[in-house]
Design a protein around this nucleic acid. Structure first.
Lengths: 181, 181
DNA sequence: TTTCGCATGTAAACAGTTACATGATTAC
DNA sequence: GTAATCATGTAACTGTTTACATGCGAAA
């Protein structure tokens, strides 16, 4: 999914500036699904405007820098629907955390314990945010569905880590002993 | 985690060629954690050899192309342990599938149904592979821990999709009706 | 007979992030 | 005072993927 389509998706939910689009990928309901940086967003918005898929309105603000607010056009909505109708690329996932755990026998047990604890805390923090009313609006059925899937997956990962943390630590601390199942 | 460290990790489990390293990221226990392509692996192996972190042995084979088998050196193991001791970068995740579901109201319900069904089938196929004895060895506690975390997460995602599939389809098919909770 | 698996490698193309440039206001 | 938030944008750098180049043997 290219950055232009990602921006088009956010703008389809309501007029937004480049800055607000970035926030949507960090805080809003799109968090954890995709992310981008200003270096991708601003050029994408310029291209979308040039192609007539969004309209750009310059807004002067008091006590704040000016902003450019983008609105989706009919052609933009058609382009978004078209992009959404293409076969999705495979999910892309890469995790240093899991890579390190994979080689837990090369790492001091205290560090493994710390990494797992940090990860559990991270999940619990995310889950708390996701339950905060007003975290995001969940206006559509799709948003709610994706949000709840995220909650289910993060909860199960956190549960697994809590349940199996000590087992792993015992195994790497006493490599010669058989650990009962 | 750079490609050199990824290769070093794989080679630490036993001598391997570039071709076999690629397979480890597609089929072995490292599957779903990280992936790379030949275009990254071969230059990384050249660099690791130059830096003395691996040894390279050229093996002539019958009825097969020659291969270069890489073995980790003491310096290589130290470099791996050092890389493993650095704070892990955040997980990177991006999903076209979830992006499309997020905008389910712009997509024909039949397509949403198909995408969810395909995803459930994909998870079930992965879970079946992961349960196949000999899929990978799980020689270490870390490998088993990561493997079982994967099973837990994929199972919960598949369960969620199965349980909530129809609810989402009802909501996007009858957008004006309130759906009871 | 065509595709798949084995096997290595390079170059070009593409995507993405980081750092820089600029600057006012507000909260701690 | 210092950090964070608001706000846009470019350029350089880094990393990754894809396509190309080559070719045998085995299975479908």
């Amino acid at each position: 999914m290219d950055t232009k389509t990602l921006c088009l998706g956010i703008i389809s939910r309501g007029a937004a500036s480049g800055y607000e689009i970035k926030k949507a990928f960090e805080e809003g309901g799109m968090n954890h699904i995709y992310h981008t940086s200003y270096g991708s967003i601003y050029p994408a918005l310029t291209a979308l405007t040039r192609e007539g898929l969004v309209d750009c309105a310059e807004m002067a603000q008091e006590k704040r820098p000016d902003k450019k607010v983008y609105t989706i056009t009919a052609a933009g909505r058609a382009a978004l629907e078209n992009a959404l109708s293409m076969p999705p690329a495979d999910d892309k996932f890469r995790s240093d955390f899991l890579f390190i755990l994979f080689f837990a026998h090369f790492v001091p047990p205290a560090r493994i314990a710390m990494l797992i604890d940090q990860r559990i805390a991270w999940y619990e923090n995310c889950l708390a945010d996701m339950n905060t009313p007003g975290h995001c609006r969940h206006t559509t059925a799709g948003e709610t569905f994706v949000h709840n899937l995220g909650v289910a997956v993060y909860s199960s990962a956190a549960d697994y880590l809590k349940t199996n943390r000590q087992l792993l630590l015992d195994q790497i601390s006493h490599p010669d002993q058989q650990v009962a199942e």
